[in-house]
């Protein structure tokens, strides 16, 4: 095991942990959603990076190439990206509704208003 052979894993983990940290530590709901998106994109990397073969090519069959990278993670992540943006839009819609109901997108202020009520 060397640094080069596992570097992609470690960057993936850094991105996932950074996204997790933003989601837990920050109270701003838009920032939380950015963190959630970073967490989500780190998963794309987790799936795609091991599928790469050095010397391989994109999985479009042609007689000129023999080695192809693994197409299965591409399929799984392709659909996950589009589903991801649709669910992100759902989260943003909730943020807009919260802003209209409470006049704030800060978690602490919303909780304080709920305690007072």
């Amino acid at each position: 095991m060397t640094v080069a052979s596992h570097y992609s894993y470690w960057v993936t983990i850094f991105l996932a942990v950074a996204g997790l940290y933003i989601v837990i530590a920050r109270g701003n709901l838009v920032k939380k959603l950015v963190g959630l998106s970073i967490f989500q994109t780190s998963v794309y990397l987790l799936y795609i990076a091991p599928g790469k073969l050095i010397g391989g090519t994109a999985p479009i069959v042609s007689s000129e190439f023999q080695v192809y990278s693994n197409p299965l993670p591409h399929v799984l992540i392709l659909t996950a990206i589009v589903v991801g943006v649709a669910t992100l839009a759902l989260g943003l819609a909730l943020v807009v509704r919260l802003k209209e109901a409470y006049g704030s997108i800060e978690e602490d202020e919303i909780l304080a208003q709920d305690r007072d009520a």
Partner: peptide, 8 residues
């Protein structure tokens, strides 16, 4: 793209 996932 560098990882050969052109569609993604």
């Amino acid at each position: 793209v560098a990882l050969d996932a052109v569609d993604v």
